[in-house]
């Protein structure tokens, strides 16, 4: 009975702790969208940073980048945001680690810079008879021209001889 009471108390304590420490549980950084074609813009948001504590710093690391981006706006849903333009970025996956103005860590996230659009992976099968049609029309035209000349020569043999 005593053990049961202790277990229940512990469970209630853990539940209350989770409720009372949402900041610690939900500290996160969001990158939206998580995939962008090179040259696109992504929005970095540190959801738990308090704007009153100063700007958040987003450290972006990846294939050819190790840069710090300072937050520029307060996010609509809370926290701080910055826009990141990916022109010139090497294709690949980047990690964003955020630090709030008060120095506290605000989590990390990744985003992927991809090629633009789909894959140009076809040239059209050229074996569709177009070439045969063109060559056939040329030969037939030549034959008709020759037949006309022959017919004229037959009608006017003297003129043809002259």
């Amino acid at each position: 009975m005593k053990a049961k009471t202790v277990l229940v108390s512990a469970a209630v304590g853990v539940g209350l702790g989770a409720l009372l420490l949402p900041g610690a549980a939900l500290a996160e950084t969001i990158v939206s969208p998580a995939t962008t074609p090179v040259g696109g813009t992504v929005v970095l948001t540190a959801t738990t940073c308090n704007p009153k504590s100063g700007d958040a710093i987003f450290r972006v690391t990846g294939p050819n980048r190790d840069i710090n981006v300072r937050s520029t706006t307060a996010a609509a849903g809370g926290g701080l945001s910055a826009e990141l333009f990916t022109a010139g970025f090497t294709l690949g996956t980047y990690t964003v680690t955020a630090t709030c103005g008060d120095g506290s860590a605000a989590g990390s996230a990744t985003f992927t810079v991809t090629p633009i659009g789909g894959a140009p992976a076809g040239a059209g099968d050229g074996t569709d008879g177009t070439g045969s049609l063109a060559a056939g029309a040329t030969l037939l035209g030549t034959a008709l021209g020759g037949a006309l000349i022959l017919a004229r020569r037959r009608r006017h043999p003297a003129g043809a001889a002259a």
């Binding site: 070439g131 045969s132 049609l133 030549t142 008709l144 020759g146 037949a147």
Partner: peptide, 26 residues
């Protein structure tokens, strides 16, 4: 000349027929 014209015409017709029947591979 007549033979040449006839051959040209026959070959042309043949090529046109083969071109019309060759469906593009999709």
């Amino acid at each position: 000349a007549v033979v040449a014209v006839a051959l040209l015409g026959t070959a042309g017709l043949g090529l046109i027929a083969s071109g019309l029947t060759a469906a593009p591979t999709r």
